[in-house]
Write a protein that binds this DNA or RNA. Structure first.
Length: 477
RNA sequence: GGCCCUAUCGUCUAACGGUUAGGACAUAUCCUUCUCAAGGAUAGAAUCGCGGUUCGAUUCCGCGUAGGGUCACCA
């Protein structure tokens, strides 16, 4: 087993979108497979037809594709163990079920749901855990397929196993029970189907959330029944909601991973953030590229306890990744968020760095536009009267200062109309005044019409000499 | 309730049994700046409690406490 090629899998059920908690488990499985030149399988566990949500399979694939978590086997790409959708593999589960029946390790469940409910209620009243095996029928009739098929626990014992992340784990015999293998509707349960598939697909490392720790003894007893070496278990801690310490779940507002795409996060930033929420390779470096992440990934450095989600940190991480992006690449993203009239203007490329400086995700551009923080680059701004008042300075003085600026800038050659030159010229004038603000504020306001904006030198150099002079003129009037 | 697991700044985390317990996010202040942003600097901020082992415990052990998970014909 140890010398085998690494095989990991992500096995979601198609019950809707997948959220960040699910995706991180997939990410760890993917990182580990990639690091070891192994195989990453996508398998759809659709054995509960009632909970299934239409379109989920496509949505799951879309989510993985957005994050560039490519799968080597699975829906869309096929593979040696196809099909990768459990509802299309029912014969296989029957085959494995028959092996257990022949070994005397599976039997037909004779009870009605009401009867079982009564057993459960009784246990509850007696403050004891409900165990089906205490009600195991003496001479069950042959299984016909219309009743549930149950696993027959052979030996009640303490189960001890080794988890790659947590080390040695164990549970007493009360964790073992005669669980259902195949439901009365003919579909296998998760407990049974995923083990058959992991065996068939030769999965070496089962990466999954810690909610499965308690049922691991059951899984191990199944492997034992088949006389097959179990895979290694890699248990990941939960992700907790941002406000509180509840496990992140759809009920508590966990978002569809694709919403983050819509908000303009970078896939590599999302992966970086997600990986570090519950994993740390040591050292002080935190911003990792995809390649670096694969190299640094180490299952034994996964945390044991839950980590709280933080939008702040995600935003910071995303900004760091935006900074790593080549300018041309960033421009491509930004163009998608700009309205038509800002998109193909000759000004556009010049404002890219200024936009990048002010956002943490592409979606923030929408906000900048709404606030009018971009308009003035493209057209003459309005000067709302209520904003025209500059404290401690008379209108005449301002007008004079603007005229001075206009004159000085007018003497600057068109080709020399750079941020640096404009700054040195305006600063020279401003330094002669009582305060620099007496000049810089009116000039900036003349150019942008905004209370808050980038500095006047940058704006002037972007919009060019003619437009700058014309706006100064207009403002003087 | 039974069983299982976890515990370092507000948050994410680092630290062969020996460190002034480190970094990052967030926060505050300062610098740069007319403003915004970005950048730089500084500050405050943690080993859950009690015992034990040890020359020495964040680290190992026990007991508390707190939190999480799980006890389905769901996955």
């Amino acid at each position: 087993m140890l010398n085998d090629k690494v095989v990991t899998r992500f096995a979601p059920s198609p019950t809707g979108f997948i959220h960040v908690g699910n995706i991180r488990t997939a990410l760890y499985a993917w990182l580990f497979a990639r690091k070891n030149n192994g195989t990453f399988i996508l398998r759809i566990e659709d054995t509960d037809k009632e909970r299934e949500v239409e379109g989920s399979i496509e949505h799951i694939q879309k989510s993985l594709k957005w994050l560039n978590l490519d799968w080597d086997e699975g829906p869309g790409v096929g593979g040696p163990h196809a099909p990768y959708i459990q509802s299309e593999r029912l014969d296989l589960y029957k085959k494995y079920a028959n092996i257990l029946i022949e070994k005397g390790l599976a039997y037909s469940d004779p009870y009605t749901e009401e009867e079982i409910e009564a057993f459960r209620k009784k246990s509850e009243e007696e403050k004891k855990p409900f165990l089906f095996r205490e009600h195991r029928p003496e001479n069950p009739s042959a299984w016909t397929g219309s009743t549930p098929l149950r696993f027959k626990v052979k030996e009640l014992k303490r189960t001890v196993w080794n988890d790659v992340v947590w080390g040695e784990l164990s549970a007493g015999p009360e964790a073992l029970d005669d669980f259902i293998l195949i439901k009365s509707d003919g579909y296998p349960t998760y407990n049974f189907a995923h083990i058959v598939d992991d065996i068939e697909m030769k999965v070496t490392h089962v990466v999954r959330g810690q909610e499965f720790i308690s049922s691991t003894p059951k899984f191990l007893s199944l492997y034992e029944a088949f006389d097959i070496m179990p895979p290694l278990f890699v248990t990941t801690p939960p992700i907790m909601g941002a406000n509180g310490n509840k496990k992140l779940s759809k009920r508590d507002g966990a978002k569809d991973i694709l919403e983050y795409e819509a908000e303009g996060y970078l896939p590599d930033a999302m992966i970086n953030y997600l990986a570090f929420l519950g994993f740390n390779p040591g050292g002080e470096k935190e911003v990792y590229t995809r390649e670096e992440l694969i190299n640094a990934f180490d299952l034994t450095k996964i945390q044991h306890s839950g980590a709280q989600w933080s939008d702040d940190k995600l935003n910071w991480m995303n900004k760091e990744h935006i900074k790593l992006l080549p300018l041309a690449e960033a421009q491509k993203y930004i163009l998608e968020y700009l309205p038509e009239d800002m998109r193909y203007d000759k000004i556009t490329p010049k404002i890219i760095p200024m936009i990048i400086e002010r956002i943490s995700k592409w979606g923030d551009i929408k906000e900048m536009i709404t606030k009018g923080e971009l308009d003035f680059f493209f057209k003459q701004p309005q000067y709302p009267k209520e904003k025209l008042i500059f404290k401690n300075t008379s209108p005449e003085k301002i007008s004079d200062n603007l005229k001075q600026a206009e004159k000085a800038l007018g003497e600057l050659n068109e080709n020399d109309f750079t941020t640096e030159n404009i700054k040195s010229i305006l600063m020279k004038i401003a330094d002669g005044l009582e305060s620099r603000g007496e000049l810089l504020h009116p000039v900036r306001f003349a150019l942008s019409g905004m209370d808050k904006s980038p500095d006047p030198f940058t704006i002037a150099s972007i919009i060019g000499k003619n437009e700058t002079l014309s706006r100064l003129q207009k403002a003087i009037e």
